[in-house]
Design a protein around this nucleic acid. Structure first.
Lengths: 129, 129
DNA sequence: TTCTGTACTTACCAAATGGAAACCTTGAAA
DNA sequence: TTTCAAGGTTTCCATTTGGTAAGTACAGAA
């Protein structure tokens, strides 16, 4: 019993950790870029993602590499030549996100409308009798 | 042409905004809790989500309400009685996230292994000749 | 008359986030 | 011999994030 509780607690913690890692702005955008373009170099990836600083791109890629989502291939030449591509796991994650991307594309207008309505609404509301 | 570019830029911005809003730790957990439990009161929701502060729960719920993902129903009694439930849009988003949840559950072990391997790996690696 | 329950709101504060920009490495080209 | 390239790393710094704790509102119970 205690084992089960501890196990579910540990799993729960792992799930949250993974959500934090995976449901990240730059991670999602890198995932998408790599899915679309296959193997890509660092600078090119920065262009594809757009608006990302070197620091954040490096950090994001390292994290993804650690989690087994991308492979980093260093060609020991000068100037450096480094390529990134998705692993099978990375690819499957990007497929799992497909539904979310589609949702965002399909609902962005409705969200925009909802926001405008909310902002236009008086601040104090009570349920009608 | 300029119109098209501007339009895609605006859409791109909206997509990022929505990713930021939607791919949020607490948002995802609230979404899941409300999908599982239907209409729920504030304090109960805090229990279901677990580990969330009042401040963050309020903030998250307000954001979700603004985006049209949840409905907030205030019953004007004392002490206050407030219920939250998903809208159709909220429900469809939680369904869109289904794939991600499944991915996380299915791959957490592999991710853990990948991390251990990465951490055990020497720091400097070059592509083999 | 003080206490309780519920759903906040606010003030305060420490920690984390993340951008900008400078610096680094090394071989080759100008 | 200065410059450049690619892919970082590091430092500095402002902003954001988010937790804790206290305050608020108000009717009914004790």
């Amino acid at each position: 019993m205690t084992d089960v509780l501890e196990h579910t607690a540990a799993l729960e913690q792992m799930v949250r950790e993974m959500i934090d890692a995976v449901a990240d702005r730059w991670t999602m955008l890198v995932l998408e870029a790599l899915e679309e373009h296959g193997e890509v170099r660092f600078t090119r990836l920065a262009e594809l993602v757009g608006g990302v600083s070197q620091k954040m791109l490096t950090k994001t890629l390292r994290q993804m590499e650690r989690d087994g989502l991308v492979v980093r291939t260093v060609h020991p030449v000068i100037p450096p030549h480094v390529e990134y591509r998705l692993t099978d796991m990375g690819l499957s994650l990007s497929e799992a996100f497909c539904g979310v991307w589609q949702w965002v594309e399909a609902h962005q207008e409705r969200v925009q409308v909802a926001r405008e309505e909310f902002d236009a609404r008086p601040k104090v509301m009570v349920a009608a009798k």
